[in-house]
Protein backbone atom coordinates (compact mmCIF):
# COMPACT_ATOMS: atom_id res chain seq x y z
CA UNK A 1 0.00 0.00 0.00
CA UNK A 2 1.44 3.33 -1.05
CA UNK A 3 1.87 6.08 1.54
CA UNK A 4 -1.30 8.06 2.02
CA UNK A 5 -2.47 11.08 3.89
CA UNK A 6 -5.72 11.09 5.74
CA UNK A 7 -8.30 13.61 6.67
CA UNK A 8 -11.65 13.21 8.25
CA UNK A 9 -14.47 15.25 6.80
CA UNK A 10 -17.16 16.66 9.00
CA UNK A 11 -19.59 17.93 6.42
CA UNK A 12 -20.52 16.76 2.98
CA UNK A 13 -19.67 19.89 1.02
CA UNK A 14 -16.19 19.99 2.48
CA UNK A 15 -15.64 16.35 1.68
CA UNK A 16 -16.71 16.88 -1.91
CA UNK A 17 -14.50 19.95 -2.23
CA UNK A 18 -11.54 18.13 -0.79
CA UNK A 19 -11.75 15.26 -3.25
CA UNK A 20 -12.89 17.12 -6.31
CA UNK A 21 -10.02 19.59 -6.12
CA UNK A 22 -7.43 16.84 -5.93
CA UNK A 23 -7.31 14.11 -8.56
CA UNK A 24 -5.27 11.92 -6.21
CA UNK A 25 -7.86 11.89 -3.42
CA UNK A 26 -10.45 9.20 -2.83
CA UNK A 27 -13.36 9.02 -0.44
CA UNK A 28 -13.07 6.46 2.33
CA UNK A 29 -16.28 5.02 3.70
CA UNK A 30 -16.47 1.41 4.92
CA UNK A 31 -13.11 0.68 3.34
CA UNK A 32 -14.02 -2.83 2.27
CA UNK A 33 -13.13 -2.07 -1.34
CA UNK A 34 -10.83 0.92 -0.93
CA UNK A 35 -8.45 -0.53 1.66
CA UNK A 36 -8.44 -3.94 0.01
CA UNK A 37 -7.53 -2.57 -3.41
CA UNK A 38 -5.06 -0.06 -2.01
CA UNK A 39 -3.19 -2.94 -0.46
CA UNK A 40 -3.44 -4.86 -3.74
CA UNK A 41 -1.95 -1.84 -5.55
CA UNK A 42 -4.97 -1.70 -7.77
CA UNK A 43 -5.98 1.70 -6.41
CA UNK A 44 -3.34 4.32 -5.83
CA UNK A 45 -4.77 7.45 -4.22
CA UNK A 46 -2.38 9.70 -2.31
CA UNK A 47 -5.01 10.94 0.06
CA UNK A 48 -8.10 9.48 1.67
CA UNK A 49 -10.95 11.66 2.79
CA UNK A 50 -12.81 9.79 5.51
CA UNK A 51 -16.52 10.47 5.14
CA UNK A 52 -17.74 8.18 7.89
CA UNK A 53 -18.74 11.08 10.14
CA UNK A 54 -21.03 12.64 7.55
CA UNK A 55 -24.72 12.67 8.43
CA UNK A 56 -25.78 10.38 5.59
CA UNK A 57 -26.88 7.33 7.52
CA UNK A 58 -30.66 7.67 7.50
CA UNK A 59 -32.98 4.83 6.51
CA UNK A 60 -36.54 5.98 6.25
CA UNK A 61 -39.75 5.09 4.56
CA UNK A 62 -41.39 7.84 2.58
CA UNK A 63 -45.08 8.57 3.18
CA UNK A 64 -46.00 7.27 -0.27
CA UNK A 65 -44.46 3.88 0.39
CA UNK A 66 -40.96 4.40 -0.96
CA UNK A 67 -37.61 4.43 0.76
CA UNK A 68 -34.78 6.85 1.31
CA UNK A 69 -31.42 5.40 2.26
CA UNK A 70 -28.42 7.52 3.18
CA UNK A 71 -25.27 6.68 1.30
CA UNK A 72 -23.44 5.91 4.53
CA UNK A 73 -26.10 3.63 5.96
CA UNK A 74 -24.42 0.28 6.50
CA UNK A 75 -25.61 -2.79 4.62
CA UNK A 76 -26.50 -4.55 7.87
CA UNK A 77 -28.60 -1.65 9.16
CA UNK A 78 -30.50 -1.33 5.91
CA UNK A 79 -31.17 -5.06 5.80
CA UNK A 80 -32.43 -5.01 9.39
CA UNK A 81 -34.69 -1.97 9.03
CA UNK A 82 -38.32 -3.05 9.41
CA UNK A 83 -39.47 -0.67 6.73
CA UNK A 84 -37.07 -2.23 4.25
CA UNK A 85 -38.03 -5.77 5.14
CA UNK A 86 -41.70 -4.97 4.91
CA UNK A 87 -41.80 -2.89 1.76
CA UNK A 88 -38.84 -4.32 -0.14
CA UNK A 89 -37.98 -7.86 0.96
CA UNK A 90 -35.76 -8.30 -2.09
CA UNK A 91 -33.47 -5.50 -0.87
CA UNK A 92 -33.11 -7.04 2.57
CA UNK A 93 -32.51 -10.48 1.09
CA UNK A 94 -29.96 -9.24 -1.42
CA UNK A 95 -28.08 -7.47 1.35
CA UNK A 96 -28.09 -10.43 3.70
CA UNK A 97 -26.97 -12.84 0.99
CA UNK A 98 -23.98 -10.63 0.27
CA UNK A 99 -20.52 -10.75 1.84
CA UNK A 100 -20.43 -11.63 5.56
CA UNK A 101 -21.95 -10.19 8.72
CA UNK A 102 -18.72 -8.32 9.48
CA UNK A 103 -18.43 -6.84 6.01
CA UNK A 104 -22.08 -5.85 6.06
CA UNK A 105 -21.46 -3.96 9.30
CA UNK A 106 -18.69 -2.04 7.58
CA UNK A 107 -19.75 -1.49 4.00
CA UNK A 108 -21.85 1.55 3.16
CA UNK A 109 -24.67 1.52 0.65
CA UNK A 110 -22.95 4.11 -1.51
CA UNK A 111 -19.72 2.16 -1.42
CA UNK A 112 -21.57 -1.01 -2.29
CA UNK A 113 -22.76 0.53 -5.55
CA UNK A 114 -19.19 1.56 -6.34
CA UNK A 115 -17.46 -1.66 -5.37
CA UNK A 116 -14.99 -2.92 -7.93
CA UNK A 117 -15.11 -6.16 -9.85
CA UNK A 118 -13.75 -9.49 -8.58
CA UNK A 119 -12.07 -10.35 -11.90
CA UNK A 120 -8.76 -11.87 -10.83
CA UNK A 121 -6.96 -10.17 -13.71
CA UNK A 122 -8.21 -6.82 -12.46
CA UNK A 123 -7.25 -7.61 -8.89
CA UNK A 124 -3.76 -8.97 -9.47
CA UNK A 125 -2.37 -5.59 -10.56
CA UNK A 126 -0.18 -7.43 -13.07
CA UNK A 127 -2.24 -8.88 -15.87
CA UNK A 128 -3.40 -6.88 -18.83
CA UNK A 129 -6.71 -5.27 -17.86
CA UNK A 130 -8.52 -2.49 -19.66
CA UNK A 131 -10.44 -1.61 -16.56
CA UNK A 132 -7.35 -1.09 -14.44
CA UNK A 133 -5.05 0.18 -17.18
CA UNK A 134 -6.94 1.29 -20.25
CA UNK A 135 -5.52 0.00 -23.48
CA UNK A 136 -3.61 -2.94 -22.06
CA UNK A 137 -6.13 -5.54 -23.20
CA UNK A 138 -8.42 -8.01 -21.44
CA UNK A 139 -6.85 -11.14 -19.98
CA UNK A 140 -10.17 -12.67 -19.04
CA UNK A 141 -11.63 -13.16 -22.50
CA UNK A 142 -9.03 -15.79 -23.36
CA UNK A 143 -8.29 -16.62 -19.76
CA UNK A 144 -10.13 -18.16 -16.85
CA UNK A 145 -13.65 -16.81 -17.18
CA UNK A 146 -15.94 -19.15 -15.28
CA UNK A 147 -17.32 -16.34 -13.15
CA UNK A 148 -17.41 -13.71 -15.87
CA UNK A 149 -20.30 -11.98 -17.56
CA UNK A 150 -22.33 -13.20 -20.49
CA UNK A 151 -24.47 -10.10 -20.94
CA UNK A 152 -23.35 -6.56 -21.60
CA UNK A 153 -19.83 -7.62 -22.41
CA UNK A 154 -17.52 -6.03 -24.91
CA UNK A 155 -14.32 -7.08 -26.59
CA UNK A 156 -12.57 -4.96 -23.99
CA UNK A 157 -14.02 -6.33 -20.76
CA UNK A 158 -16.19 -9.19 -19.52
CA UNK A 159 -15.94 -8.60 -15.76
CA UNK A 160 -19.11 -9.26 -13.79
CA UNK A 161 -20.62 -6.54 -11.65
CA UNK A 162 -20.24 -7.92 -8.13
CA UNK A 163 -22.98 -6.22 -6.12
CA UNK A 164 -26.08 -8.05 -4.96
CA UNK A 165 -28.08 -5.13 -3.63
CA UNK A 166 -27.46 -3.12 -6.78
CA UNK A 167 -29.36 -5.85 -8.62
CA UNK A 168 -32.36 -5.45 -6.35
CA UNK A 169 -32.16 -1.67 -6.65
CA UNK A 170 -31.97 -1.92 -10.42
CA UNK A 171 -35.18 -3.89 -10.49
CA UNK A 172 -36.89 -1.11 -8.54
CA UNK A 173 -36.25 2.02 -10.64
CA UNK A 174 -34.09 3.41 -7.89
CA UNK A 175 -32.51 6.84 -8.17
CA UNK A 176 -28.98 7.57 -6.99
CA UNK A 177 -28.49 11.04 -5.52
CA UNK A 178 -25.12 12.71 -5.55
CA UNK A 179 -23.40 15.90 -4.61
CA UNK A 180 -20.56 16.98 -6.84
CA UNK A 181 -18.52 20.06 -7.51
CA UNK A 182 -21.34 21.19 -9.75
CA UNK A 183 -24.08 20.60 -7.25
CA UNK A 184 -26.67 17.92 -6.65
CA UNK A 185 -27.67 15.38 -9.24
CA UNK A 186 -29.87 12.34 -9.45
CA UNK A 187 -29.36 9.36 -11.74
CA UNK A 188 -31.83 6.65 -12.63
CA UNK A 189 -30.10 3.50 -11.46
CA UNK A 190 -29.99 2.01 -14.92
CA UNK A 191 -28.00 5.02 -16.16
CA UNK A 192 -25.77 4.92 -13.13
CA UNK A 193 -24.04 1.70 -14.15
CA UNK A 194 -22.24 1.88 -17.48
CA UNK A 195 -21.59 -0.94 -19.88
CA UNK A 196 -17.88 -1.49 -20.48
CA UNK A 197 -17.99 -0.76 -24.21
CA UNK A 198 -14.61 0.56 -25.22
CA UNK A 199 -14.05 2.33 -21.89
CA UNK A 200 -14.37 -0.33 -19.18
CA UNK A 201 -12.49 1.88 -16.74
CA UNK A 202 -15.56 4.13 -16.66
CA UNK A 203 -18.06 2.23 -14.55
CA UNK A 204 -20.44 5.08 -13.70
CA UNK A 205 -21.02 8.66 -14.79
CA UNK A 206 -19.75 10.31 -11.62
CA UNK A 207 -17.20 13.08 -11.89
CA UNK A 208 -14.16 12.85 -9.69
CA UNK A 209 -15.19 14.06 -6.27
CA UNK A 210 -18.88 13.52 -6.86
CA UNK A 211 -20.24 11.77 -3.80
CA UNK A 212 -23.25 9.51 -3.55
CA UNK A 213 -25.41 11.02 -0.84
CA UNK A 214 -28.47 8.83 -0.95
CA UNK A 215 -30.53 6.17 -2.64
CA UNK A 216 -34.20 6.74 -3.34
CA UNK A 217 -36.41 3.78 -3.97
CA UNK A 218 -39.82 4.80 -5.29
CA UNK A 219 -42.99 3.34 -3.90
CA UNK A 220 -43.73 0.02 -5.52
CA UNK A 221 -46.45 -2.01 -3.84
CA UNK A 222 -45.65 -5.14 -5.83
CA UNK A 223 -42.20 -5.19 -4.22
CA UNK A 224 -43.82 -6.50 -1.06
CA UNK A 225 -44.08 -9.73 -3.00
CA UNK A 226 -40.48 -10.08 -4.02
CA UNK A 227 -37.35 -12.13 -3.60
CA UNK A 228 -33.69 -12.26 -4.29
CA UNK A 229 -32.46 -15.66 -5.45
CA UNK A 230 -28.70 -16.15 -5.38
CA UNK A 231 -26.93 -19.15 -6.88
CA UNK A 232 -23.32 -19.84 -5.99
CA UNK A 233 -20.96 -22.74 -5.34
CA UNK A 234 -20.51 -22.10 -1.65
CA UNK A 235 -23.56 -21.74 0.51
CA UNK A 236 -22.46 -18.40 1.94
CA UNK A 237 -19.77 -15.70 1.76
CA UNK A 238 -19.40 -15.81 -1.99
CA UNK A 239 -20.32 -13.69 -4.96
CA UNK A 240 -23.15 -14.80 -7.19
CA UNK A 241 -22.77 -17.02 -10.22
CA UNK A 242 -26.31 -16.03 -11.05
CA UNK A 243 -28.84 -14.03 -9.12
CA UNK A 244 -32.37 -12.89 -9.75
CA UNK A 245 -34.15 -9.99 -8.11
CA UNK A 246 -37.83 -10.29 -8.72
CA UNK A 247 -41.00 -8.49 -7.70
CA UNK A 248 -44.23 -9.89 -9.00
CA UNK A 249 -47.89 -9.07 -8.96
CA UNK A 250 -50.28 -11.79 -10.05
CA UNK A 251 -54.00 -11.39 -10.58
CA UNK A 252 -56.16 -14.36 -11.42
CA UNK A 253 -53.30 -16.40 -12.76
CA UNK A 254 -52.01 -13.57 -14.92
CA UNK A 255 -48.98 -11.42 -14.31
CA UNK A 256 -50.19 -7.89 -13.70
CA UNK A 257 -46.82 -6.34 -13.07
CA UNK A 258 -43.25 -7.49 -12.73
CA UNK A 259 -39.78 -6.12 -12.05
CA UNK A 260 -36.76 -8.28 -12.66
CA UNK A 261 -33.01 -7.80 -12.63
CA UNK A 262 -30.12 -10.22 -12.88
CA UNK A 263 -26.81 -10.37 -11.10
CA UNK A 264 -23.68 -12.45 -11.60
CA UNK A 265 -24.18 -12.69 -15.35
CA UNK A 266 -23.69 -9.17 -16.61
CA UNK A 267 -21.18 -6.36 -16.61
CA UNK A 268 -23.71 -4.20 -14.78
CA UNK A 269 -26.75 -4.97 -12.63
CA UNK A 270 -28.97 -6.19 -15.42
CA UNK A 271 -32.51 -5.01 -15.67
CA UNK A 272 -34.40 -7.81 -17.41
CA UNK A 273 -36.71 -5.61 -19.44
CA UNK A 274 -37.24 -8.11 -22.21
CA UNK A 275 -38.40 -10.71 -19.77
CA UNK A 276 -40.60 -8.15 -18.02
CA UNK A 277 -42.20 -7.11 -21.30
CA UNK A 278 -42.85 -10.71 -22.19
CA UNK A 279 -44.31 -11.55 -18.81
CA UNK A 280 -46.76 -8.69 -18.34
CA UNK A 281 -50.17 -10.06 -19.12
CA UNK A 282 -48.86 -13.60 -19.44
CA UNK A 283 -50.31 -16.53 -17.55
CA UNK A 284 -48.26 -17.81 -14.63
CA UNK A 285 -47.29 -21.07 -16.24
CA UNK A 286 -43.86 -22.57 -16.51
CA UNK A 287 -43.72 -22.36 -20.28
CA UNK A 288 -44.11 -18.62 -20.11
CA UNK A 289 -41.47 -18.37 -17.44
CA UNK A 290 -39.06 -20.37 -19.56
CA UNK A 291 -39.81 -18.30 -22.64
CA UNK A 292 -39.28 -15.08 -20.74
CA UNK A 293 -35.98 -16.39 -19.49
CA UNK A 294 -34.93 -17.42 -22.96
CA UNK A 295 -35.85 -14.05 -24.39
CA UNK A 296 -33.82 -12.28 -21.75
CA UNK A 297 -30.74 -14.39 -22.32
CA UNK A 298 -31.00 -14.46 -26.11
CA UNK A 299 -28.14 -12.03 -26.62
CA UNK A 300 -25.81 -13.71 -24.16
CA UNK A 301 -22.23 -14.01 -25.40
CA UNK A 302 -20.53 -16.59 -23.22
CA UNK A 303 -17.01 -17.91 -23.27
CA UNK A 304 -16.57 -21.70 -23.37
CA UNK A 305 -15.97 -21.61 -19.63
CA UNK A 306 -19.03 -19.66 -18.58
CA UNK A 307 -21.48 -20.98 -21.14
CA UNK A 308 -23.30 -22.80 -18.35
CA UNK A 309 -24.37 -19.46 -16.95
CA UNK A 310 -26.70 -18.89 -19.87
CA UNK A 311 -28.64 -22.02 -18.96
CA UNK A 312 -28.27 -21.49 -15.24
CA UNK A 313 -29.60 -17.95 -15.45
CA UNK A 314 -32.67 -19.15 -17.32
CA UNK A 315 -33.33 -21.81 -14.74
CA UNK A 316 -32.85 -19.33 -11.93
CA UNK A 317 -35.32 -16.95 -13.55
CA UNK A 318 -37.84 -19.76 -13.88
CA UNK A 319 -37.24 -20.79 -10.28
CA UNK A 320 -37.75 -17.24 -9.05
CA UNK A 321 -40.94 -16.87 -11.03
CA UNK A 322 -42.15 -20.28 -9.89
CA UNK A 323 -41.50 -19.34 -6.29
CA UNK A 324 -43.41 -16.07 -6.43
CA UNK A 325 -45.82 -16.98 -9.20
CA UNK A 326 -47.77 -19.56 -7.27
CA UNK A 327 -48.75 -16.93 -4.81
CA UNK A 328 -47.30 -18.70 -1.79
CA UNK A 329 -45.11 -15.80 -0.91
CA UNK A 330 -41.50 -14.73 -1.15
CA UNK A 331 -38.77 -17.28 -1.25
CA UNK A 332 -35.70 -17.16 0.86
CA UNK A 333 -33.10 -16.90 -1.86
CA UNK A 334 -30.59 -19.68 -2.08
CA UNK A 335 -30.94 -20.01 1.64
CA UNK A 336 -33.98 -22.19 1.11
CA UNK A 337 -32.78 -25.17 2.97
CA UNK A 338 -32.57 -28.59 1.41
Amino acid sequence: MRPITYLRATDTATAVAAVSTDPTSDFLAGGTTEVDLLRQNVLNPRRLVDINDLPLTGIEGTPDGGLRIGALARMSDVAAAPVVRERFPLIAQALELGASAQLRNMASMGGNLLQRVRCSYFRDAESACNKREPGTGCSAIEGFSRGHAVLGTSEHCIATHPSDVAVALTALDTRVHTLGPNGERAYPVDDFFLLPGDSPHREHPLEHGELITGIEVPAMPLARHSLYLKVRDRESYEFALVSVALALSVMNGTIADVRMALGGVATKPWRARRAEDFLIGAATVRDNFALAARVEMADARPTPMNAFKVELAQRAIVRALDTLGDGTGPGAGSGSSP
Binding site: R118, G147, D233, S236, F239
Partner: peptide, 13 residues
Protein backbone atom coordinates in the same frame (compact mmCIF):
# COMPACT_ATOMS: atom_id res chain seq x y z
CA UNK B 1 -5.11 -17.51 -5.16
CA UNK B 2 -7.20 -16.00 -2.41
CA UNK B 3 -9.82 -17.18 0.05
CA UNK B 4 -12.57 -15.31 -1.75
CA UNK B 5 -12.19 -17.41 -4.88
CA UNK B 6 -10.43 -20.55 -3.64
CA UNK B 7 -13.45 -21.88 -1.83
CA UNK B 8 -13.10 -23.73 1.43
CA UNK B 9 -16.15 -24.81 3.35
CA UNK B 10 -17.74 -22.14 5.53
CA UNK B 11 -20.05 -22.78 8.44
CA UNK B 12 -23.11 -22.82 6.18
CA UNK B 13 -21.66 -25.67 4.10
Amino acid sequence: SNLGEYLVAVNAD
